[in-house]
Design a protein around this nucleic acid. Structure first.
Length: 437
RNA sequence: CGGGGCGUAGCACAGCCUGGUAGUGCGCCUGCUUUGGGAGCAGGAGGUCGGAGGUUCGAAUCCUCUCGCCCCGACCA
């Protein structure tokens, strides 16, 4: 993509409404545009990041055996009247009426709807277990939306729902998601720590929040430093290997991790002093086991092996996909802008032509651009070098190929790594090999 | 939902107290010079001052109502 043709508006100054760094950078780098309080339009660069985050989430859900569906944003009120939450949910639920005066709502979550859908088809214990998820826009009419997409009213969420015959089965489903979440966040280059959590209004007993560590995070967290070195991606635990997954889960949850609210000084003092860590974090995921809280009132039951009807055990598993985009920036930035991890960068590379019009520069840039048409932004604007450096740093492309008259004459490309600031001059071929490795 | 603040050009702001017909910087357009970390000079475009009503000869400015947005606190992916 040529910058002279792209819709990638950057701002030199920070819009007044933005308070936190991710919001400021998202506005300055042209990722999002506010349309009203807590509601944002996603511009090309922001949308590409959102899609990449979404895709990683999707792949790890699939890997864990969950199956994707897509439920609507608008739901009928009667589903919620059945579960009893229509009244409980309060003003946070956006209620609307259609032209026939039917009561509808913009879904804040989907327990009712998925239970209703599943109920229509599941009749036997042989239909269990199942785990269904979707990635869909939600709306919660927050009293005070703030921090950009970190706490918007409209947000993109992945929510999965598991159905099991027994409590033991449901706990296994829970652990599958637990591992999937650790893998998901790690793939994005984030350090995530699972913390035992309050179950809140959704109900149930078993619940964990996933907090990613970022110095600018809102919540204070206490955790064992062992979390920092763990590699979940390499954890080979089969989805259906119940004892192995249980052992894994118990090993991880045995390590101390708690948010301020759940912090236990007695247990904390039992952790080796040298590995006690206190930091800031952002909640990006939350998983719950809640038994028959929805299956019973919604009338979901299947015939058990003995022919007796059983209400399935359920769990729900959320990841704030749009919030993750902001969280990624909170965890990866400096004074010049965003430093996208490779896995989620909108484009892998920015090609900086420092002297548009110079035959050698133009030729080398075009050649590189042609080699990576989908992964590169070619800054072919007739602007000064400083402008291009500033914008490339702001937008946070993992690699910058800096091509100026001096190097270009010798066929040399200077590669800069945004994350570390390292720069190195090399031949075109070497550069291309590095970039496509 | 309680408390506070702000709406003036694409962005950041001044002007308002003390009414006299709108300004600065950045950005944008044209030209010349410049050219490895947000250039210089010259010329130019762009705003019914959030909206409605009122006071007044005259309202960005004073009054009333209204809409929107932001911040602090209680709640949440």
């Amino acid at each position: 993509m040529r910058l002279t043709r792209a819709f990638l508006p950057t701002l030199k100054e920070t819009p007044a409404e933005a308070q936190i760094v991710s919001h400021r950078l998202m506005l300055r780098a042209g990722l999002i545009r506010q349309t009203s309080a807590g509601i944002y339009a996603w511009l090309p660069a922001g949308l590409r990041v959102l899609r990449k985050v979404e895709q990683i989430v999707r792949e790890e859900q699939d890997r864990a055996g969950a199956q994707e569906v897509l439920m609507p944003t608008i739901q009928p009120a009667d589903l919620w009247q059945k579960s009893g939450r229509y009244d409980d949910y309060g003003k946070e639920m956006l209620r609307i009426k259609d032209r026939h005066e039917r009561e509808m709502l913009f879904g804040p979550t989907n327990e009712e709807m998925i239970t209703d859908i599943f109920r229509s088809y599941a009749t036997s214990y042989r239909d269990l277990p199942r785990n269904l998820y979707h990635i869909q826009w939600k709306f919660r009419d927050e009293v005070r939306p703030r921090f950009g997409v970190m706490r918007g009213r409209e947000f993109l969420m992945k929510d999965a729902y598991s159905f099991d015959l027994t409590k033991e089965g449901s706990e296994h489903s829970y652990r599958q998601m637990f591992l999937a979440y650790l893998r998901t966040f790690q793939r994005m280059g984030l350090k995530a720590v699972p913390m035992r959590a309050d179950t809140g209004p959704i109900g149930g007993k078993l619940s964990h929040e996933f907090i990613i560590l970022a110095d600018t995070g809102e919540s204070t967290v206490f955790y064992d430093s062992k979390f920092e070195g763990l590699d979940w991606g390499g954890t080979e635990v089969g989805n259906d290997d119940v004892p192995a997954l249980k052992a894994f889960f118990e090993e991880v949850t045995a390590m101390y991790a708690a948010t301020e609210e759940m912090h236990d000084e007695a247990a904390w003092s039992g952790v080796d002093a040298a590995s006690r860590r206190e930091g800031k974090g952002i909640e990006v995921g939350h998983i719950f086991h809640f038994g028959t809280k929805y299956s019973e009132p919604m009338g979901l039951s299947v015939a058990g092996p003995d022919g007796v009807a059983v209400a399935p055990q359920m769990g729900s598993y959320g990841i704030g996909v749009s919030r993750l985009v902001a969280a990624l920036i909170e965890a990866n930035h400096d004074e010049n802008g965003i430093k996208w991890p490779d896995a989620v960068a909108p484009w892998k590379l920015s090609i900086l032509n420092l002297k548009v019009g110079d035959a050698a520069c133009d030729a080398l840039c075009e050649k590189l651009h042609a080699a990576m048409p989908d992964d590169a932004i070619y800054d072919d604007r007739p602007d000064r070098a400083g402008v291009k450096f500033a914008d490339a740093d702001l937008m946070g492309f993992p690699w910058q190929a800096i091509i100026g008259p001096r190097g270009a004459a010798a066929g040399k490309v200077e590669l800069k790594r945004r994350m570390t600031g390292e720069r190195e001059e090399m031949s075109f071929e070497e550069a291309l090999a590095k970039l496509t490795a």
